[in-house]
């Protein structure tokens, strides 16, 4: 298989869109499913979500948030016309296509790319979908697309100030996100809340939703290796049972997730991830990256 990059562009700060020829995925993927990508011969496998696709033309789009070595490397080393080595999928279970009524679908930062296909499909089958994007201003994406696709699209954003590091940005996302979600729940009275974002962010929003007792689904993103259920790296405790997010999920009931465990496990490789990134940056500086 040849997975050619048909189009590549930076759609917002640190957000890169790749349109890729991958007919085997485009033919089969359903909202809620993901793919595993390996871009380089010495590369790792990373899970990403098809945002849009065309079964007839055989392409999918993926959006990466540049957060470490692999996503940065993809941005630095892959251009239009280049090929990606492997794209496996579609993986995971599709999102349930049911009439829930009024749905509040929340995406934090690049999490919104995963919300998009699901929210669009939910709206299409007769739900009233309100989407909320919690994001720093320079990273707003898919705004027009969502405005077209759902009943109401809200962007809760803030400017990035000089000297704002990840901890400060994250604090701002959580504070603003929690306030906005509280406001929307009281005003819109949704029947279901759905959220995609970093585990800590999901937990923070869940804490608010829980107060109102509204059903909440979350797409989880634990560390994955194969994505086909053969290693258990992505295991999570849900309802007291160990589940593999890649085959049993990615969607789970937020009330049943063991959040402390999930957060600890998602930060398991933080040191090595930092080392990998620094190693790559050093190579770039020395002009040694291939």
């Amino acid at each position: 298989m040849v997975y050619e990059i048909l189009e590549k562009r930076e759609i917002a700060a640190n957000n890169v869109l790749y349109k890729i020829h991958a007919p085997h995925i485009a033919r089969k993927v359903q909202p809620g499913q993901f793919v595993v990508v390996r871009a380089f011969e010495n590369g790792e496998r990373i899970p990403l979500t098809p945002v849009m696709w065309d079964a007839e033309e055989g392409w999918i789009t993926l959006v990466t948030f540049i957060r470490g070595r692999t996503t940065l490397r993809m941005n630095m080393e892959l251009q239009e016309g280049d090929k990606i080595l492997n794209i496996a999928g579609p993986l995971g279970n599709p999102a349930p296509m049911k009439k829930f009524g009024k749905i509040l679908a929340i995406g934090m930062i690049t999490g919104i790319v995963e919300v998009y296909p699901i929210a669009k499909a939910w709206q299409e089958i007769g739900n009233e979908v309100i989407t909320l994007h919690i994001v720093p201003e320079p990273m707003i994406i898919l705004k027009e697309d969502l405005e077209k696709a759902v009943s109401k699209h809200i962007v809760e954003s803030f400017p990035l100030k000089e000297g704002m590091g990840m901890p400060e940005i994250f604090k701002e996302l959580v504070t603003r996100g929690q306030a906005k979600v509280r406001e929307l729940i009281e005003k819109e009275k949704p029947d279901l809340v759905f959220m995609v974002g970093p585990a800590r962010g999901q937990k923070a929003i869940f804490d608010v939703v829980k107060e109102y007792g509204i059903p909440m689904e979350v797409d989880l993103h634990p560390i994955m290796v194969d994505g086909t259920g053969m290693c258990g790296a992505c295991r999570v405790t849900v309802g007291g049972e160990v589940k593999f997010a890649c085959v049993d999920g990615p969607s789970f009931n937020a009330y049943e997730v063991n959040w402390e465990e999930l957060i600890a496990r998602s930060e398991f490789y933080a040191d090595l991830e930092k080392k990998a990134l620094e190693d790559y940056l050093t190579k770039l500086q020395q002009g040694g990256a291939q």
Binding site: N42, L272, E273, A276
Partner: peptide
């Protein structure tokens, strides 16, 4: 499969 024993020459980490 991922040659994590050659990290960071290979991208896959192992701890």
């Amino acid at each position: 499969l991922m040659k994590a024993y050659k990290f960071p020459e290979y991208d896959e980490p192992i701890s």
